[in-house]
Design a protein around this nucleic acid. Structure first.
Lengths: 226, 226
DNA sequence: TCCGATCGTCAAGATCACGTCAAGAAGAGG
DNA sequence: CCTCTTCTTGACGTGATCTTGACGATCGGA
């Protein structure tokens, strides 16, 4: 869930934003002044900050600088001042967007979506598993052996291996493998499986005749054993 | 140098922005309508787009969608309409910022800096990589050989190379390459890929017949090996 | 012990994908 | 208007990959 930190000194704005954001399934924290904002940002690590420039204890631009010192969380600035100087100062201090009061809640939510969309690019987990002396990197679509050499797999081999590796330890039936790799009308051509499982073992297992990770479950299917 | 594409149908705004941006050392392209904007964006690959919603030939939101189909270049929208509906529509279509006319040039420039700063932060840890005797400098959009000579790449060649280099070691599927370089409707024209990969190898690989960095994964895609 | 089912292996032809060459079309610049 | 670059499109030979069939080996049950 996306965490939003709202910083404003007007209780009614705080309340309105909290209600609207919660209704959109955001996780909302609120702060009434700059000091609390910096403290909460450090402790709760929000995914986005909505910041009013008119705070009682410190200048809003100082808050932006305080945040930018250690994070580049997206910051949307609210302000009653429409002056060009203020906008330039806030944006150059590190803000990502600037909205002048009074503003529509719909607009603010749209801007929240816009900046989170852009910031969402990072953060993908890529699994990698070991088979004997080889490392299967699903994200990079590559198999490397211990000394860095590449093992080349054909598209069908990859497809088959990927299904097995994505269900580690689980038995995958022949029907499902055939259906997923070759299509719905190939559910009884088990010789395809025999053919390609043998090729995978030749390329990946230390002793292809005695597989330790790509196992056969007679009569049922195959299993990848990590 | 940061390339900016300015799209507006009012010549005086075009002129004012061109002068101001060039003074700030931006590389400026201009377009007077949506069709020209989409064409120029495809051929010149700007780093940021400034887009007026009131275009003579098509709705501005359509232009945003047309761009978002194949690129996520930052888009700053200009508009005379201050209505909340327009802002929400534009931002949700994929715009990154929304500025209402009349606007101050200083403010627009600050917003340009804000979005480019964020776009740069997203994926910029690989400014330069090595391919054989050549150095590919993504930031400078240039390829140099060891003795300082420059290698000229066409826009299409550069775009293709850039995608591969930005995913070092990763397999990039043919579909994704075709989609990102040529557009959504070219996802099966693999002969384009063969053509341009061959040209890149001729220009960059020491032995184009035996590529060591721009590798083919038969049936699946291509891979840049650092 | 025999028998049937299932699996691993080998070997072939058919098919597909890739690299390459080449030529026309479209666009940019002078 | 002309020239040069770049993009698009087609065709072909070659090699890798897929498909298909066949043959022992192994195992469990009759």
């Amino acid at each position: 869930m996306t965490r939003v930190l709202v910083v404003d000194d007007e209780p009614q704005i705080l309340r309105a934003l909290r209600i609207n954001l919660k209704a959109r399934r955001y996780d909302v924290e609120v702060a009434g002044d700059g000091a609390a904002a910096l403290r909460l940002a450090a402790s709760h690590r929000p995914d986005i900050v909505v910041l009013d420039l008119g705070l009682p204890d410190m200048d809003g631009v100082q808050v932006i600088r305080g945040l930018r010192g250690w994070t580049n969380v997206p910051i949307i600035v609210l302000s009653g001042r429409a002056g060009s100087q203020d906008k330039v100062a806030a944006l150059d201090a590190g803000a990502d967007d600037y909205v002048t009061k009074p503003f529509g809640v719909d607009e603010l939510l749209a801007r929240v979506r816009a900046v989170t969309r852009r910031a969402a690019g990072a953060g993908e987990e890529v699994p990698a598993v070991e088979i004997g002396r080889h490392t299967v990197d699903l994200g990079a679509h590559a198999v490397r052996t211990g000394d860095g050499a590449e093992v080349r797999l054909t598209p069908t081999e990859w497809h088959l291996l990927e299904i097995l590796v994505r269900h580690p330890g689980r038995l995958v039936s022949q029907r499902q493998l055939l259906h997923d790799v070759w299509g719905p009308q190939y559910q009884s051509e088990t010789n395809y499986l025999r053919q390609y499982m043998a090729q995978l073992r030749r390329k990946l297992e230390d002793d292809p005749a005695r597989p330790r990770h790509l196992l056969t479950e007679p009569g049922m299917g195959y299993r990848f054993q990590p």
